[in-house]
Design a protein around this nucleic acid. Sequence first.
DNA 1: AACAGCTTCAACCGCTGTCTT
DNA 2: GAAGACAGCGGTTGAAGCTGT
Length: 277
Amino acid sequence: MGRAPCCEKMGLNKGPWTKEEDQILISYINENGRGNWRALPKKAGLLRCGKSCRLRWTNYLRPDIKRGNFTQEEEDTIIKLHQALGNRWSAIAATLPGRTDNEIKNVWHSHLKKRLIPQQDHQGQAVRKTQPEQGTNKALSVEKPKFHCQDSNSSPVKIIVSKQEPGTNNQSSSLQYSSSDDISSSLSFTDATTTTTIPDNPTEIYLTNSGDGDSVSNKHQELDQDIWHDVVSSQDHSLSPVLHRGGCGFNPFTNDDINFWCDLFTRTEDISHLLEF
DNA sequence: AACAGCTTCAACCGCTGTCTT
DNA sequence: GAAGACAGCGGTTGAAGCTGT
C-alpha cells in the first residue's frame, strides 16, 4: 500500500479559502462534477492541493450542506450513535443528512462531550457495579447471525434470540432474553442472575420489542424509546438494522453495515453499556 | 476600553483502505 | 503479489470570535 505523496507545497495556498477560490471550485464542480481530486485544482486553476479542495467541498461548499445549529434531535442522535459506534464520525454523519463528519466531530468535542461528563460519571459507576466477573462472557458459537429488528410499540424492549421470525405463530423455538438473562454469549447482560443455555445455535437474532415490561427496568424503557426505536426500528427494514430517522428514508447501510452490526453485537464484551442511558 | 482566557470551527496532517497497474 | 495513486477518515491545530473581569 503506497503512501500518498505529499502534495506539492510550493506555491500552493493554505489556510482559509477566499470567496474567489470557493467560486472557482463550485463552478468547476458544477460544470465537470467531482472527478479526480488530485487533478482538479490544476484543471480548475486553483492553487490548492486536491485534498484541500475535497475537504472544502465536502465540508462547506456542497449544496446539500445544512447550515445552522444542531437540533435537539440531531444532538440526541449523535450522542446515541456515538455511544454505539464510537468515533466513527462518518458513519454518524451518514445518518444526519446535510451534516458532515467534521461538523459532527466539532459539535461532539465542543458541546456534547461536555454535556455528557456528569452522566458518564454516573454511568461509569453503574457499569462498574454490574461488570461481570472476568471470563464469564463466553463466545456464542453461532455462525454469523442475521439481526432482525421489530418495533411493535413503545413498551420496554427485550432481545429475542430466535430462529423464528417474530410475529409468526410458531414461537416455540424462540428464546427471549431480557436484561436479567445471560445468554451465555458475548451478547450477554452483565447483571445476569441466571444462566440460560441456548439449545440450538441461533442462525438469526431478532431484536424485538416484546411489550412485556415486567422484567426490565426504566433504563431499558428509555433504551427502547431511544436506541432501539431509532436505531433498529421499523418493520419495513426488518432484514437489516437500519438507522432511519426523521422520515428521510435514507438508508446508509449496505450489507457491509449489516456485517458491522453483527460484529458489534457478537463481539462486544458487554452490551449493557449500551443500555445504561 | 483592554486584556486574558475560553470556545468554536475550518482546515490541515498523517494514516489507512481500496483500486489500479 | 508489490507498489503506486487516490479517496476518505479521525485527530489535531490555530485563528477568530466570544465572554468575563
